[in-house]
Design a protein around this nucleic acid. Sequence first.
RNA 1: GCGCCCGUAGCUCAGUGGAUAGAGCGCCAGGUUGCGGACCUGGAGGUCGUGGGUUCGAGUCCCGCCGGGCGCGCCA
Length: 569
Amino acid sequence: MTPDATASLRTQVRQAIQSAWQSAQVDLPAPVDAIDVPVDIERPADTTRGDFASTIALKLAKPYRRAPLQIAQAIAAHVATTATDPASPIAAVEVAPPGFLNIRLADGALAANAARILRDPAAWGHVAAEHPEHINVEFVSANPTGPLHIGNARGAFTGDLLCRVLTAAGHKVEREYYFNDFGSQVKNLGASVVAIREGCELPEDGYHGDYVYDMARELPAEILDEARKPGEDPAWAVGRWASEKVRSGIEASLDHLGCHFDVWRSESTLHNDGWVTRAVERLRAAGDVYEEDGAVVFRSTKYGDDKDRVILRSTGDAAPTYFAADIGYVVEKFSRGYGRIVFIWGEDHHGYVARVKAAAQSLGFEGDRVQMILTAWVRFVRDGKEVPMSKRTGEFITLDELLGEIGVDAARWFFASRAASSGIDFDIELAKKQSNENPVYYVQYAYARIASILRKAAEAGIATPKADDPRLVGLLTGILPGAPEAQLVRQIVRLPEVVEEAAASEETHGITTYATELATAFHAFYRDARVIEEAEPDRSAARLALVAATKTTLANALGLLGISAPESM
RNA sequence: GCGCCCGUAGCUCAGUGGAUAGAGCGCCAGGUUGCGGACCUGGAGGUCGUGGGUUCGAGUCCCGCCGGGCGCGCCA
């Protein structure tokens, strides 16, 4: 098997070791017909051991009933026979007890990867998916009864980051926002606006926020007149106007965060277009519904839920429950051709996971085509006290206010660098204070420093080699034995592997960690290697190429996080 | 009560069953006759909540316990 030069180096190494294991079978007669153990390729904790390590020999010891050391030696011997091949990514393999394989990369492969960055900068960090999917990701989906507050931030960033990573990993992704324009909350919002406009007392459960007062002032007279016509309920009519206004405000806030949605879907369209009714009929046809106390119930326990769920109420109009609308929504989404649909929910919705998956299964969609990612709770704290948040009372800090205080880049970094499942205490005062020490500026500083070097080189008349320069790979290979260059290039070429890992784990903190390590490697390189040296034109050109590749890599890593890469700061 | 998530350095958090458990911030001590000092080098700091178990090997997997969060509506 020839290693795929467009894959990550880790994948190339895996293919090489896999192939060596295959060849080593002649020395290692297997006691059973086929032994299927995935070849693991990891980064050793101690980098002096090599660029990669594999424990495959340890894992094969039991099935082969041989000493791991012996297996490792057999595989290493077969890698050695191909190491002279210029296409091989591996320069050397060493065996360490009890059976580790320590792998060192070839300078030629490193240089070729760095050159590849300059050839197609936009593609660097994008990898081909083994099984490309068409994925719908629904997130935020806050009801349009008030502006987004800081509690919505995590869902917004988590969803956006996931979409960016899945796209880079070769999938086709659509971003979706679902909102309820149907429930009594909308009516309540309208009633609140009308009451304020007319100087009446607010309804008991009315909305109190400043934005409600703003809308009461801005409400056009003709909308109010229209709402007052006989046969209209003013609360509903004004509520529809107000919730659309809030919704478009939410869209603007999300745009400001760098979160753009492809589809905005309202609950009322699901009902009006018949998706809910048809979904209920499908459940019925599957034999998974029954009646109880006048209500229609879905037998979700058949698919692992703890209890069955009502989908049509026992009230006279047999109105569908919110859950019934969600079932209709699942059908509607799959009708658009997605292979997988993903929901980003706060962990307070975890009790909801089983019933939606159950419904999908009853409808005939395999369980793994519906996925929920739960984000742990964020406790917002100011001066040691939890900040209460309620849209109804208007006691909340909006997302726009938060970002005015700490900035989009810093906020994005904060959320990207933590696992979705990890609970966070977000101290707003601390975040403001620490925003200057946020690692995001460390990474951006490295980028700006590089931009400055490249500008300076251009002024000095020293050209950075072009991607099609035939000397490029040779120049790069020439400097790689140097310690500063060797460290830096090894960080640069990791990006595709970092993307693969982020996509596989559906987490982004590996990207922030990587960006920090790359910036550190660059700063160390900068200390030890003079880039602009007119007396050393070849070395200077090669180092400029390496610096340019670093610049692209930093920009693309930041781009995956939706964070800007400033030319100066 | 039942279910799910979490517990790792002073703080905020990483750690796909592998080698000596890491990073940032904070703290301590150093570093500029040259391309951006928002930088660099070194150091201190850990019973991985706890007790068992599985394994050649456990922070990671299984069970119990302790502590924290969330959920257990014909609401949305």
